[in-house]
Nucleic acid binder design. Structure first.
Lengths: 210, 210
DNA sequence: CCCGGCCTCCCCATTTCGGGGGATTCCAAC
DNA sequence: GTTGGAATCCCCCGAAATGGGGAGGCCGGG
């Protein structure tokens, strides 16, 4: 943070123009930071990263065209040392977990204070990691849980759309008995009391989207 | 919009500091607008409105302490001519409907372009109404639908939390048969295929929250 | 090579739902 | 004062979901 160091070069990726504006003006007020590019979806982010190779990328998760998780994976495939901070509205512990597994160094909420954000940028730039406390807490509550398998997620998604077991079976090309088995596992793993509760829990935790 | 007119006096109400920053810097760039106050929840909004009586209030819906709908109702009880524009992330047609019934003159998404926002501010200040096209479309699809009654919402909320009809009945102090009747009505009104689907539809449309 | 996880399928018994029907009471609005 | 909506309760019945058990095949890591 000494004045002799070059500024932290930052890329912003978010599809909300207003939020980009807010970030941009926040960064403009920090003498040790400079904004090098903006992108409004994952594809643009990839190009912008290649062109500018920023020190820090601030990335939203929900975006059209290419979501933040895929963008993080793609960026870190080409640049394994890229430091990326996810900045999002809350969407459950699973989304955060996926972002971190994809290589994010930070996970923050858009509702946080400006001060915390700039501190996190400096912190991550210095090589540390920073996960918002409430998200860390929620992730910790589920570390011991078995995650849903791909097949179980498929079943649950169809159930969320109103399919009965028999219809799920027909759509997936498997027997109704298999669907029942998957649902039994889902109920157990999510600690849900019935299929409706399971869908609600999965939506809250970011395990499925609708 | 002539330079001789006094500027449009604006109040911002949003719990996201970053978004307030973005709005603030956007307004600062408009010669015919001036920011008179900011608030980060409904209560503060009420006080700020009384103190400053802005021409336009930009209001989020989801906030701690006092939500946007209640804040709109409260403000317009004291100041029936207040012009309020709701600025939110998408949460279903029902939330928009409630905001408009409470007296909002505009309903916009946070993902919109800056240009559209400043145009809407001028438009609403001139006495017109402005609802984002996609929201208007979705609201139009449901104008013919019967809305859920208070009791039906109560039942659906408990169902979403994993209660069986029998348990909903016990919690609400009514008979299971009554719960079944309510659920039948809910399924019909929402066009849902089963209770799980009903909960998902209600969540998407902003009819219930979890 | 063997083990574990995943996916698949099957059986049984009980409970819960969903879709019909109908009925009463209460309150507020016209 | 009648009318209508909301809320309450009741019946029947077939379909669906839940909870318990078991079991075989496949694939990848140790």
């Amino acid at each position: 943070m000494s004045a002799t160091n070059p500024p932290i070069r930052i890329l912003i990726v978010d599809d909300h123009p207003l939020l980009r504006e807010g970030l941009s003006s926040l960064i403009a007020g920090q003498p040790d930071m400079t904004l090098v590019a903006e992108a409004e979806n994952g594809e643009q982010a990839l190009r912008a990263f290649r062109d500018h190779q920023p020190d820090i990328t601030l990335m939203d998760v929900q975006m059209p065209t290419m979501n933040g998780i895929d963008a993080i994976t793609a960026i870190r495939t080409g640049f394994p040392t890229a430091r990326i901070i996810v900045l999002t509205t809350y969407k459950g512990d699973m989304q955060a977990l996926r972002a971190i597994k994809a290589g994010a160094s930070g996970y923050l909420l858009k509702s946080m204070l400006r001060k915390e954000l700039v501190e996190t940028i400096r912190s991550v730039h210095a090589g540390r990691r920073r996960i918002a406390a409430d998200i860390a807490t929620e992730m910790a509550e589920h570390v011991a849980d078995d995650e849903l398998t791909a097949r179980e997620c498929d079943v649950l998604r169809l159930v969320a759309l109103g399919s009965a077991n028999k219809e799920v079976a027909a759509r997936m090309g498997i027997s109704e008995e298999t669907v029942k088995t998957h649902m039994k596992n889902v109920l157990t793993k999510l600690g849900a009391r019935d299929r409706t509760h399971a869908v609600v829990v999965a939506l809250k935790r970011g395990i499925i989207d609708i």
